[in-house]
Simulated scan of single mutants.
Amino acid sequence: MSPTANDQVHNRIAMLRAERGISRRQLSDALGVHYQTVGYLERGEYSPSLELALRIAAHFEVPVEVIFSLEPFPRLGT
């Protein structure tokens, strides 16, 4: 199910992956999900379950709210 503007979960998965040099496939293998799921998450086409959100946060070793938000994250840089 695609999120609407009111219930979209914003995330920083792509930024964290790029920062750490991890491919979508590497992340999906580490999380035990299909690599396309990571793409859907990054594009906001799919909201993760609580369990998956917590596993992603644990993988990146950051609090879940660093990765996910109900509000858009501010843009970095100009």
Score class of each variant (00 low, 15 high):
residue 1 M to P: 11
residue 2 S to E: 06
residue 3 P to E: 03
residue 4 T to L: 03
residue 5 A to M: 06
residue 5 A to T: 07
residue 7 D to G: 05
residue 8 Q to S: 09
residue 8 Q to H: 03
residue 9 V to T: 10
residue 11 N to Q: 07
residue 11 N to C: 08
residue 11 N to S: 11
residue 12 R to C: 05
residue 15 M to K: 08
residue 16 L to R: 03
residue 17 R to I: 02
residue 17 R to V: 01
residue 18 A to E: 15
residue 19 E to W: 07
residue 20 R to N: 06
residue 20 R to S: 00
residue 21 G to H: 11
residue 22 I to S: 04
residue 22 I to D: 01
residue 22 I to Y: 05
residue 24 R to Q: 15
residue 24 R to I: 00
residue 24 R to Y: 12
residue 24 R to M: 14
residue 25 R to K: 14
residue 25 R to V: 11
residue 26 Q to N: 12
residue 26 Q to L: 10
residue 27 L to C: 06
residue 27 L to I: 15
residue 27 L to A: 12
residue 27 L to D: 07
residue 28 S to R: 07
residue 28 S to L: 02
residue 29 D to V: 09
residue 30 A to K: 08
residue 31 L to D: 06
residue 32 G to H: 11
residue 32 G to I: 02
residue 33 V to G: 01
residue 33 V to H: 04
residue 36 Q to Y: 14
residue 39 G to E: 09
residue 39 G to W: 01
residue 40 Y to Q: 15
residue 40 Y to E: 15
residue 40 Y to C: 06
residue 41 L to H: 07
residue 41 L to R: 07
residue 41 L to I: 05
residue 42 E to F: 05
residue 43 R to Q: 10
residue 43 R to L: 07
residue 43 R to V: 01
residue 43 R to N: 06
residue 47 S to H: 01
residue 47 S to D: 01
residue 48 P to G: 10
residue 49 S to I: 06
residue 49 S to E: 13
residue 50 L to Q: 13
residue 51 E to T: 09
residue 51 E to L: 13
residue 51 E to N: 05
residue 52 L to T: 08
residue 53 A to H: 02
residue 53 A to G: 11
residue 53 A to E: 15
residue 54 L to I: 13
residue 54 L to N: 11
residue 54 L to S: 06
residue 55 R to Y: 01
residue 56 I to D: 00
residue 56 I to Y: 04
residue 57 A to H: 14
residue 57 A to G: 07
residue 58 A to G: 08
residue 59 H to D: 02
residue 60 F to N: 00
residue 60 F to P: 02
residue 61 E to S: 12
residue 61 E to D: 14
residue 62 V to G: 13
residue 64 V to H: 08
residue 65 E to Q: 15
residue 65 E to I: 13
residue 66 V to F: 10
residue 67 I to N: 07
residue 68 F to S: 02
residue 68 F to M: 00
residue 69 S to R: 04
residue 71 E to L: 11
residue 71 E to N: 11
residue 71 E to F: 14
residue 72 P to I: 03
residue 73 F to W: 11
residue 73 F to P: 04
residue 74 P to K: 03
residue 75 R to E: 13
residue 75 R to L: 12
residue 76 L to Q: 15
residue 76 L to G: 13
